[in-house]
Structure formats: C-alpha cells, structure tokens
C-alpha cells in the first residue's frame, strides 16, 4: 500500500431509488446489518433520474466512487426508468475510461426493497473496491486547475 492509500477512507455518494434500493437500505437498517459508513445516500424517485451530470458532479466534488441503486429489470416502479439508467451508465463508463477515469468509480446495482442483505453486501464490497482503486484523481485535477 502506498502512502496515498494508507488509511484511505473513500467518500462515496449513493443515488438510491425510493421504491427499491432506498427501501432495501431501510430494510438493512431494520435488520441491523452493519456496513462501512463511507456512503452518503441521496434519495431519488427513480434511478432513471440519475444522469451523467449528477455522477460527474459527484466525482468533481470529491467522490471516490458513485453507487447507483435501482429496481431489478422489469420491476421499475416507473415502468422503465432502470433500463434508461443501465444504458446511460454503460455509456458513461465508456466515456470515463476514455478520459482516464477508472470506470469502476461508477457502479450500478439492482437492489429490491426486499434485499437488505444485498444492500449491505453491495456497500461493503464497493467500499473495499474503491479502497483498492485509491483516492479519485478527479478532485485533484479539478483543484489543480482552479
């Protein structure tokens, strides 16, 4: 581990859809499933509300990773928002790698209202994944330009 990542606690923003993933996170809480405190949740009505600008804004403002939680395919409360998210995230990941940002800094996961355990697993895994990736270079670059 180099100096930069030693004791590194990543900052992660999670956009959680109100009907599935946010409720799944509630269930994880009700079930007292513990996970690392690095993720700050922001409730959106639908994962389809999450656009590239929101993800880029998070990275620019210092997020080391961005998690997006939506309903499983076919289960979207708003019919098809999650399919749109899936396409957007795929494109965004490609664009990120082209500008030299590791696409793993954005992660989309389907978590239903019933999947408290999956929420716990996802957050725990993602925090570790981002720890392995180290601090995001984006904020530094942005600061350097300012």
């Amino acid at each position: 581990m180099d100096e930069r990542t030693d004791g590194f606690e990543p900052k992660i923003v999670a956009f959680l859809c109100r009907w599935c993933s946010y409720a799944g996170a509630d269930l994880a809480g009700v079930s007292r499933m513990t996970y690392p405190p690095n993720v700050i949740p922001i409730r959106v009505n639908c994962s389809g509300r999450v656009d590239a600008e929101m993800v880029l804004a998070a990275l620019e403002k210092g997020a080391d990773g961005v998690l997006i939680g939506g309903c499983h395919p076919g289960d979207c409360h708003y019919v098809s928002g999650n399919y749109k998210t899936r396409r957007r995230v795929t494109l965004l990941k490609r664009a990120l790698s082209e500008i030299g940002i590791d696409p793993r800094r954005v992660h989309l996961e389907w978590i239903s209202a019933n999947e408290g355990a999956k929420f716990q697993r996802t957050v725990s895994w993602y925090v570790n994944e981002i720890k392995r990736l180290g601090p995001s270079p984006v904020a530094e670059v942005v600061d350097g330009q300012a």
Partner: peptide, 29 residues
Amino acid sequence: GCGTCVSACPTGAAQLLNMTDSQVREMIE
C-alpha cells in the same frame, strides 16, 4: 414524478419540482 425526462433533457428545461438539478448538485456537494 420519476424524473426520467429531467435526466434526458439536453437543455435543462425539464426539472422535477423540489428535486431540481441545482438542488441535487448542492446536495452532492
């Protein structure tokens, strides 16, 4: 109120009441 139109709108003309792009940006920050 799903907001799919908001994220698709190329000009920012579409907004979701009480969850606008600028609100979300402030929240992220």
